[in-house]
Design a binder for these strands. Sequence first.
DNA 1: CTGAAAGCGCTTACAG
DNA 2: CTGAAAGCGCTTACAG
Lengths: 339, 339
Amino acid sequence: MVHKKTQLKDIAREVGVSTATVSYVLNDHPMSARISEDVSARIRQTALDLNYQPNQIAKSLKTQKTYTIGLIVADIANPFSAHMARIIEDDAKKKGYTVIFGSSDENIDKAQNLINTMFNRQIDGLILAAVDKSQSQIADILKKGVPLVLIDRYFPMDQVSYVGIDNYGATYEAVELLIRNGRKRIGLISYHTELVHLSERNRGYLDALRDGGITADNALIKTISLHQIRQDVERSLAELLQAEPAVDAVLFTTNLLSINGLRYLYQQKVAIPEQLAVVAFDETDVYDFFPISITYVRQPLDELGRAASEVLISQMENKTEQAIQVNLKTTLVVGQSSG
Amino acid sequence: MVHKKTQLKDIAREVGVSTATVSYVLNDHPMSARISEDVSARIRQTALDLNYQPNQIAKSLKTQKTYTIGLIVADIANPFSAHMARIIEDDAKKKGYTVIFGSSDENIDKAQNLINTMFNRQIDGLILAAVDKSQSQIADILKKGVPLVLIDRYFPMDQVSYVGIDNYGATYEAVELLIRNGRKRIGLISYHTELVHLSERNRGYLDALRDGGITADNALIKTISLHQIRQDVERSLAELLQAEPAVDAVLFTTNLLSINGLRYLYQQKVAIPEQLAVVAFDETDVYDFFPISITYVRQPLDELGRAASEVLISQMENKTEQAIQVNLKTTLVVGQSSG
DNA sequence: CTGAAAGCGCTTACAG
DNA sequence: CTGAAAGCGCTTACAG
């Protein structure tokens, strides 16, 4: 026996008032201050008795607010994205918002598709891990006036809010450590992309080398295809391990690169740090399974997610025109793998 | 300069027809067959020119269909959930649905809160990883007539659709292998819960022992709190390792138990499989970092997610009254850790 | 072949 | 102190 959902008018009929009165009371509308205690109480009680649940769709159509935020990541199955999603979910829920999500697979058409779908659903704001070469996509969103916060991936546009890390500093610090530990032939495993946050990580690497008096060697800089990570990482590491003069350190610039790289180094029985010093990126479960502790760049994921949600929601609610850009510090967690 | 979104009536005015006609054409409504080619073409073109994006909220209010499905998992940050979420997202998107998600943290009140929120948003259906002792919560959903598919966690209610694995068979097979490999003192690390899918895993363990002619020893069965996994797993393993007579094998029943358990065994330098044979549950990144290959129960995550989405959507679209229960086979991936 | 009009379930300015 | 009525942006039976 499927019951029809109770509506405002059912309560109104039951209590003998108009739907307006019911709406005022149940929403604590200022107008409700003038409604008699008796009527208010009966409305509230009847709403409970009939298990009234407001139809958010109808509400949204009228108020032009859906209390929904969109979250577009590269892949929700990536622990980095999933962790962030969880933090955003919690902050959003606390403030009365629900999250709808989608995975772009780093593909600009899929991303556009998700953006369109979410806009059709009238999201109040969007948190976007933008894909490579998507400046104009971002500009389009801004033009629509929908609150937007870029996360993780930075684009040099000053009208857009952004929450990420100090990418340059993160790798600079890592390479500095390697140099201090006496390493001179330091390889880099990064993605083949124009994404600014990654090129900033590359730049940090290059500048740290220069400042450490080491001439960068292009043969030691490997760029990995986003779409065949494992294979590319393994090939690149194999090449690095055969370089002349020998490579004595390597830096990974993302979590997946780190996991795939460490797996290969482990399977090849490369002595870390004796033969090769390693600095990884992001926290992952696998570090605990290494004979030695792994040195890695820790991104403050909780703070990142929370900041993204907070910046977005404050923008949505205060109609702040001002874009806010947040660059959080990373922590270099120093273990034994860096020598 | 924020543009007002274009609406049906903008197109109607532009072309000089009614909104009804525009709606018929843009939705390929049967009625549109009778609309002249010329008018149709102009409507379509104008929609493009004005970059018309239908307001899904308005559409939903009228049609009583939101093309949204809810997904409630224990924790979206758990790789098991995140992986499933991704598969569900893909299948749902292919069929025109969007997913909103929430994490229950195994807490029945949080779950109820999420369910209410999702129902207020008029989701067309729900995929639910139900929490412990939530039978009446599930019954309430069924009473409302909202299409529902339980995932992962089974409840003995025949009116509800379910997609999961053969939990009993999964552990039965694992223990059978351990016995065949000569193990006699086999420990079990499982959760402290009444969740049926986990008690089924326990039952598979017990029956395999019995059928293998081994008397179960309650001291070897450890139940872990869902809320302090790491600590409990480590304490339990420490106890198992000191049992008399000595334990010679251990079986983990979930991915988090496996990761935490393996970490401890690794750190304690327990010889696997010589001192202790191990069978883990679910695929995880960490297995590759073990000196030997890990034997584990592989859940078909892709099939699980896809089946859940398919069963739900077919139920939503065909109004199938019939509940469908799917139990997928697991695969015992045999490595060296099981002896 | 096309349009006028009702209605989905709410909110809210306005009137009294 | 409370209600009648308009309207959010669509869809769709009905009429012509």
